[in-house]
Each structure stands twice: as C-alpha cells, then as structure tokens.
Simulated assay, not measured.
Amino acid sequence: MTSTYASAYAAALSAAHDAAAGQNYPPGALYVVATPIGNLADITLRALHVLQLADVVACEDTRHTQTLLRAYGIDKSTAQLLAVHQHNEAQAAQVVIDRLHQGQRVAYASDAGTPAISDPGARLVAAVRLASLPVVPLPGASSVTTALSVAGIADEGAHHGEFVFVGFLSSKSAERATAITALGVEARAVVMLEAPHRIGALATALATLGERRLTVGRELTKQFEEIATFPASTFPDWLHRDPNRSRGEFVLVLHPAMVAAESGSEQRILKMLLAELPLKTAVKLTADITGASRNVLYEAALALKKEGA
C-alpha cells in the first residue's frame, strides 16, 4: 500500500522541492507541521519539503508517522524519529531542545491535523520558546476549521462568526452534563471533538439543548465522510438510524444561540429602517444595532414587506 502511494506522490515531492526549496529553513528551529486529518492528498508542499529536510521528526506515534512518511516516499530511519506524546512531552521536550542547540532541524507532527490544538505539542512549543529557540509554523489541515467551514455560522446569533473550541468533554456523565449546561448559555458557536465509543453518550447529553442547531462531521475528508445539520434534540435519533454513524472520529459544531427578532425594540427598528432603506441594508443595520441574527431579521423583514403589500 505505501509503495503504491509513494509512487503516486513522487511528483508531489518534486513539486515540493521546486516550490519550497528556495525559501529559508534555519537550522536549530522547531517546525510545527500540520498533517492530513484523513485524506493523504491534503498535505502541503511545504510540509513535504520540511519533512524531507528535517534531521529529526518528533511525533505523537512513531509507527503512525513512519507509515505516513513512507506513503509520501520520504525515507527516515528509526533513529530519526522521536516519540513526543502526552505521557512524555515534558521530558521529550528537553531532548528536542538539545537537538536544536546542536543546530538540527526538528519537525513535529501529531497523528493528524495541526499539532498543539487538541493533540500534544503545546508543551513542546512552550518549552522551545522558553529556551529562546525559534518555532516555525507550517499551517495545513485542521479538523476544527474543516468543520467550521461547512457549518455556515457566520450570520447566526449575536456573535457573527465567533466560536469557542472545547475539544473533548469529560467522559464522566456528571461532569459532561455540567459542561453541556454551561454550553447551553454560551452565545457563540462551540466546537467539540468526540471518539466513536463515546458519541452515543454525548448525543444524549446534547439533546437537552433542544432546538439549538448542531452540525456533525464524521470521518471528515475520508471515504465515508458524513456532514449533517439538525436540532440538537434529534441527534440521538440521527445517530441510531444508521449503525455506521457511530463509527469514526467526530467533530461537532454547536451553532450560536439564535437571537429572536420578535422583541418590540427589534421590530420597531426594523420597521423604521425598512421605510427608508432597501431590505438588505435595513436588515444589516438592525442586526448591527440589536445583535439579532441576520437570518431571523431577514425573514421578519420579508414578512413585514408582505404585510405592507
């Protein structure tokens, strides 16, 4: 399998060298490298070049990363791979710092996506910075931004486009319930992660949020990718309708709390502006003034126009 992939990515390696080799890659620096969250083709040209160039590849799981590198046709010996994971991150950071002081280039990659967001890497980066050594980010795939990009939250709620990332909630039912109660009064969008063996419990807990909209991304960028948006109350039913939906890794976006456009002040402002301005302009200004959802205000404006006609 890896040899087949390596042949397919031979051109990509050549393109990576042509596109990135002329740039500056100082020695003695830590390179934080984003890797695909599922689809191998989501690697960047600069990531390929740096993974080839690095003297050492620090990684969450050396076996996983070795397989990934070989899929791209990148040959690193076992001695060039250094395990840096949640159980040894503090100690391994010193090994990385020693390598950097020797002038080596060290690339760090977690198992998937951008390191140090939910995966390990944050302690390593902090330790390297504390040692006054350079850290170079190589942006790329991220499950968080991938899910947000298809959730369509920009014009929802009072906090247009804002979100909070909470990662994995507690596996303990009482702590999870407390966290979800707090999320229920969070006006901004909330991004969560979950594993397949716990998704059922999370679905039941999130159902208590009623009509609050939820976008669920399962197996993002992979062959059986599935993305759906529905009221949180229907999440358990959606999950149970197909046994396959309990498989794979999950990214969930709890949409912003909708601000109703039915209060007297919002309706009065909207009516006044509609009398003087085009519909879209009136809606935008009313949203800016009141913090109400543009989508809700737009529907209210159409209804008012219809009544006036």
Rank of each mutant, 00 (worst) to 15 (best):
S142D: 09
V185D: 09
A79T: 14
E175I: 01
S110Q: 13
E89Y: 02
K271P: 00
A292P: 10
K306C: 02
A205C: 10
G217H: 01
G291M: 03
H49M: 05
I37S: 05
A16L: 11
V106Y: 07
S118P: 12
V135K: 02
L252R: 07
A16I: 04
V95G: 00
R70C: 05
A195P: 10
V164W: 13
D55T: 06
N295Q: 12
R129C: 08
P26W: 03
G73V: 11
Q104R: 09
T181Q: 15
Q267F: 01
A287R: 11
K280D: 13
S142H: 10
L209F: 02
A174N: 07
P115A: 07
P256T: 07
L53Q: 10
A158T: 12
A177L: 12
A300G: 07
F168C: 10
N39H: 12
P139K: 10
Q223P: 00
A301M: 01
K76Q: 03
A207K: 03
S110N: 10
V164N: 12
A47R: 11
P196A: 05
Y298V: 01
P256K: 08
D55E: 08
R247A: 07
A93C: 12
A12N: 07
A158I: 02
R268K: 14
T67A: 15
M272K: 13
G264I: 13
T181C: 03
G161F: 03
V144L: 14
L40A: 06
V166F: 05
L297F: 09
R198Y: 11
S265Y: 13
V216R: 02
G113A: 07
L279T: 15
L220M: 15
H255M: 09
Y31W: 12
H197N: 12
R212K: 08
H101N: 13
I227L: 11
H64S: 13
G200F: 06
Q104Y: 06
A151C: 03
R46Q: 12
A109D: 05
V106P: 07
L51K: 05
V50M: 12
A131E: 04
T78C: 00
K222D: 06
S14Y: 01
L193V: 10
P256G: 12
K306R: 15
D119Q: 11
V166G: 01
V136K: 04
Q102V: 00
L100D: 01
T114C: 05
D242A: 12
R63Q: 15
R188T: 04
V144Y: 00
F250P: 04
T67H: 15
L274C: 03
E186K: 07
I74N: 06
V185W: 01
A41I: 00
S143E: 01
A47Y: 09
E249R: 09
V251Y: 03
G113T: 11
V32C: 11
A228Y: 05
D111F: 08
A182V: 13
D242G: 01
G28W: 08
V251A: 15
G152P: 08
P36G: 06
D42H: 02
D75Y: 08
T208H: 09
Y31V: 02
K305A: 08
A174I: 04
A179K: 15
A116G: 10
M192C: 14
R176C: 11
S173C: 00
V283G: 02
E211H: 04
